[in-house]
Design a protein around this nucleic acid. Structure first.
Length: 423
RNA sequence: GGAGAGAUGGCAGAGCGGUCGAAUGCGGCGGUCUUGAAAACCGUUGAGCCGAAAGGUUCCGGGGGUUCGAAUCCCUCUCUCUCCGCCA
């Protein structure tokens, strides 16, 4: 959610940003300003009337105290009429306020000037590449390797739960456990505090990070208790400080957390979903930062580097994309995607997405910091994966496979896997 | 799951239906004193919204109601605590 005052002062900038993000309808901006105008006028009117009513109520109190009942009675009569008036105006105000909020929720964040303008993923800019993508013919996709070793059981996953809920066995189960530990330790070294978060959140939290409204279809729900299964640890971790004011001196606040993530992925079919490419449940380590608004641009670069470091440590070739305006999403001002090379599939797989939301999320969640002047102000939030497991597993199985079919353990993971050479 | 008690400012803790945005204490900040610090003393110290400002308005767990007037009364929801039951 953007600040209505920012919207009022930056109509053109906002509309340009919206068009660049692929929104067709920018009239919503004029509409929200118009409704806000009505809202302000009405607030003023109501406040004035309430002020009057409050004054009279106090007069009545004073008169009653002096025993002047008759005078008090006559003021009471006038006041009840005033009260009716206020009540009907308040109803109007409520409607305006709801409309205003709904419109505000539908206005996307403004892209940072450094973001390339573009319509689709084809306009994303390759920011950097690391390592040499492998192109050997004999390399198999991970689903074949996993089958040979009985490492992943998709079929029984279907039986027990459904498609997209595989079982991991033996070497890959251990590999995932090792990756979780490695990622968390690496994050701790970079100053992120480890957090074990709830796997379900309530509606307020889902609203805070922006899954509600509009994106609730991505989440599994527990209707009886009003919970949502988290699609990413971003939800519980970012909402941790919801409705709080944080001392500026402790910024930046950095958290990391491992959780399973559940996504319904409704409507995604085809060959992209083969193997581990797209699952309904997967594991991820998430990095979250709450920062001073002056530093968020810088903090995004640091966050990206923290994520990239992990791929470098695993010696997996990858590339970093700077997402263009049309492909970056509703809530971000700037976003980098990290894509690992999958030699068995001969394609890039997204394993991390590092985003700056500036005040967009924090404003919804009312996460503020107290500056030197003592006034609470909205802070900036960022998050990034560090990293998502399944595609890393794919990349490891495919990159570290030998022609014999064995899979080597990446050097950096050996301490986590009994110093074994092979998985 | 059953029975009872409760939810007030950063924390603790008062609060008869009428000058209560809320006593008091602690903490925080500023000052006096001190070579410095502590102690003591004085002052100050919640948030949202409207407004250029003056000022106004809203908020005492959430929502609704009674009343001219609600932190105070009623309904409801949520949460916390105590006891019982169950349990990793």
């Amino acid at each position: 959610m953007l600040d209505i005052n920012f919207i009022r002062a930056n109509v053109d900038l906002l509309k340009t940003g919206m068009i660049n993000k692929g929104e067709k309808d920018t009239n919503i901006v004029d509409k929200v300003i118009e409704i806000d105008e009505q809202w302000r006028t009405l607030v003023h009117e109501i406040d004035t009337k309430r002020s009057e009513a409050n004054t009279r109520a106090k007069q009545i109190g004073a008169l009653m105290g002096q025993g002047k009942k008759d005078e008090a009675q006559s003021i009471m009569k006038e006041t009840s009429a005033l009260k009716e008036e206020v009540k009907s105006l308040e109803e109007k105000l409520g409607v305006l306020a709801t409309d205003r909020t709904e419109l505000l929720y539908r206005i996307p964040n403004v892209p940072d000037p450094s973001v390339p303008v573009g319509h689709s993923e084809n306009d994303n800019v390759v920011f950097s590449t690391w390592g040499e993508p492998l192109h050997h013919d004999w390399r198999k996709p991970h689903w074949d390797i996993a089958k040979e070793h009985n490492w992943i059981d998709f079929e029984r996953g279907v039986k027990v739960t459904g498609a997209g809920f595989p079982f991991y066995l033996g070497g890959v189960a251990r590999l995932q456990r090792a990756l979780i530990n490695f990622f968390l330790n690496a994050a701790a070294e970079r100053g992120y505090e480890e957090m074990q978060a709830p796997y379900f959140v309530n509606e307020d939290s889902a609203r805070g990070t922006g899954q509600i409204p509009d994106k609730e279809d991505m989440m599994y729900t527990v209707p009886r208790d009003g919970f949502f299964a988290i699609p990413t640890a971003e939800l519980p971790i970012t909402n941790f400080h919801r409705d709080e004011i944080i001392d500026a001196a402790v910024l930046p606040v950095k958290y990391c957390g491992y959780t399973p993530c559940w996504r319904r992925e409704a409507g995604s079919y085809g060959k992209d979903v083969r193997g581990l490419n797209r699952l309904h449940q997967f594991d991820k380590i998430e990095l979250v930062k709450l920062v001073h608004p002056d530093n968020s641009a810088q903090e995004l670069e640091l966050l990206r580097e923290d994520a990239e470091r992990l791929l470098q440590a695993l010696e997996l070739p990858y590339r970093t994309l700077l997402m263009c305006t049309g492909d970056m999403g509703f809530t971000q001002t700037k976003k980098y995607d990290l894509e690992v090379w999958s030699p068995g599939q001969q394609r890039w797989l997204e394993v991390s997405s590092c985003s700056n939301f500036e005040g967009f999320q924090a404003r919804r969640m009312m996460i503020r910091y107290r500056d030197e002047d003592g006034k609470p102000k909205i802070l900036h939030t960022l998050n990034g994966s560090g990293l998502a497991l399944p595609r890393i597993v794919s990349a490891i199985l495919e990159t570290y496979q030998e022609e014999s079919g064995k899979v080597r353990v990446p050097e950096v993971l050996k301490p986590y896997l009994g110093n074994n050479t092979y998985l």
